[in-house]
Amino acid sequence: MPSPTAPHSESSDLAATVMRVGQIGFDAPAALLARFDLQLQRVPAGEAIPGSFWGDEEAGIIGNTVYARDDTPVHSLLHEAGHLIVLPAERRLRVHTDATDSIEEEDATCYLQIVLADQLPGVGRERLMTDMDAWGYSFRLGSTRAWFERDAGEAREFLQARGLIPATP
């Protein structure tokens, strides 16, 4: 199970190398989120990101909107979007900053952000898992990849039961 942790330390060399939204642009992520009836709102550089749980450059969520700046890590945008995607539509509208206190939803969100990365040109799950590790996501098996491949069965079943990912044959 993933363990939510505070984001990277600003001095971390690895965290400095994570892919940022400004590197891939806002068009592809906005189109991806729109498929789930979500909006992506670009926040100007230097402004606080509305609905950001961690602050700094971390993505934020309010209702059906995900907020990000050019310096927002792609994994953060996908994680916050994932929180909204796993929620029923009627719960989304009540979300402001903190989407859940459910371990089941947190696990599903982490799994979904990895799957969604494959739908963003130039990102993909390999890069996203590397960035998640660099940023400080904490998993029982020691890495994002190990969790995703060997310990995320319940998260996968949660998403499959809701039709968010295809059932595995």
Rank of each mutant, 00 (worst) to 15 (best):
Y67G: 05
L32G: 02
T144A: 15
I114L: 11
I62V: 14
Y137S: 05
G25I: 14
P7F: 09
L159S: 01
D98N: 09
R140N: 07
G136F: 06
A15T: 10
D107R: 01
I165M: 08
L164Q: 05
A59F: 04
A31Y: 01
N64D: 14
R140I: 14
A59V: 04
L84W: 00
M132P: 01
L112I: 06
Y67C: 07
A45L: 07
E154T: 08
H8E: 14
P166M: 05
P73D: 10
R127S: 11
H8F: 15
G142K: 11
G82Y: 11
F36Q: 07
R20T: 11
P121C: 05
V66A: 06
E10M: 11
V21A: 06
I49P: 03
W54Y: 15
F139A: 10
G55W: 11
E126G: 06
S138K: 13
G122C: 09
A167I: 12
F139P: 08
P29G: 05
A34R: 13
T72H: 11
H83Y: 01
D13R: 15
D56S: 15
L159T: 01
V21E: 06
P88S: 08
S11I: 10
T97N: 02
T72G: 11
G60Y: 04
W54H: 15
V43G: 07
R145P: 01
G46W: 09
D107N: 12
V43T: 13
A34Y: 02
S3V: 13
E90W: 11
R94G: 04
L84G: 00
W135N: 10
A152L: 03
N64Y: 08
T109A: 14
S138I: 02
D37L: 03
T100A: 00
G142R: 10
P29D: 02
D133M: 07
T130W: 12
Q119H: 08
T17Q: 15
I61P: 00
T65C: 12
P4Q: 03
V66P: 06
V21K: 04
A117T: 01
G122A: 09
